[in-house]
């Protein structure tokens, strides 16, 4: 570190921002330790001792339905994110390493998908999947989550930067097929970038509300977002559920927090990379 004067004002502003961002998280941590009556009677940030009772209540709610929501969310985000990464990696590699008729056209159409608002898709996606009898199944949430125009865009950039042409050529001269080159040579080279693609899609699916809200009617298939939103709705007439809603909220953000803290170095977001060059 070079000796530089520190500026207390800069540090103070940053800490105020950090405090603002931590406030609700800190609150949910404390509130989940309160009993139903303490929630509305004791001071906001005064912790209590009912955390385990609240956890037990939440676990007992309709035979462990909450944990089923948690497992569903992990399935939607995990499987959806993985499939999405594979599809994006293949498409990005194809776009970066081959020249073929219609390449620019396909890329432009795929990229335009980034700007398509989900509002225009939600209702017709529901109707089309209803025709196939797939609404109210896992597929209804999983299938539309696989395509990610932004993931393809990122994968193209990573493939162009991380996979040298002469390596591909050398493998080809050794008699390796296109698919094998992609699987055994290009994919490992692209891996750090693909982790970022996976994380983005994982978080997007984990946080999604509109799609599962529209597609699902059976609460056994709900992800956490739809499940907890419904639980809050019931809480309006049954305030005893509020503690379960709050404890559930805390549990639902823990997995993503863990993911963030362990994979910090992959959170480099270069939205404008390449976007201004074309």
């Amino acid at each position: 570190m070079t000796a530089k004067r520190s500026s207390p004002i800069s540090t103070a502003i940053l800490l105020v921002g950090a405090g603002y961002c931590l406030l609700p998280v800190l609150w949910v941590l404390i509130a989940s330790s309160k009993s139903g009556t303490e929630l509305f009677s004791t001071f906001t940030f005064a912790p209590s001792t009912h955390l385990f009772g609240n956890l037990a209540d939440l676990t007992q709610y309709r035979g462990g339905l909450f944990w089923r929501w948690m497992a569903n969310t992990a399935l939607y985000a995990g499987a959806g994110g993985l499939l999405s990464t594979i599809v994006s990696a293949a498409a990005g590699y194809g776009l970066a390493k081959y020249s073929f008729a219609g390449k620019q056209g396909i890329f432009n159409v795929l990229l335009a998908g980034v700007l398509v608002p989900s509002v225009v898709l939600a209702v017709p996606q529901y109707l089309l999947l209803a025709k196939l009898g797939l609404t109210n199944t896992y597929w209804a949430v999983l299938l539309p989550s696989i395509i990610s125009p932004y993931g393809i865009y990122l994968a193209r950039i990573y493939a162009a930067a991380a996979v040298p042409d002469d390596v591909v050529e050398a493998a080809r001269t050794d008699g390796a097929g296109d698919f094998r080159i992609f699987r055994s040579i290009a994919s490992p080279l692209m891996a750090p970038g693909l982790v970022t693609v996976f994380l983005f899609q994982f978080v997007a699916i984990w946080n999604n509300f509109l799609l599962p809200y529209i597609m699902l009617g059976d609460d056994k298939l709900f992800p956490l977002t739809v499940g907890l939103s419904g639980l809050l709705n019931q809480g309006a007439s049954q305030p005893s559920l509020y503690t379960s809603v709050i404890t559930g909220s805390l549990l639902s953000i823990l997995p993503l927090l863990a993911l963030f803290l362990t994979l910090q170095r992959y959170w480099k977001v270069d939205l404008a990379a390449g976007a201004v060059k074309t």
């Binding site: 800069s10 800490l15 978080v203 984990w206 977002t225 809050l232 953000i253």
Partner: peptide, 26 residues
């Protein structure tokens, strides 16, 4: 010249890990 930047960066990025439904609830 700012201090505590590592902590602040993490803290301010944290809400991204919270789904809109949960943050609205909190």
């Amino acid at each position: 010249r700012a201090r505590a930047t590592k902590f602040a960066r993490l803290a301010i990025f944290l809400p991204y890990a919270v789904p809109a439904v949960i943050s609205s609830l909190l």
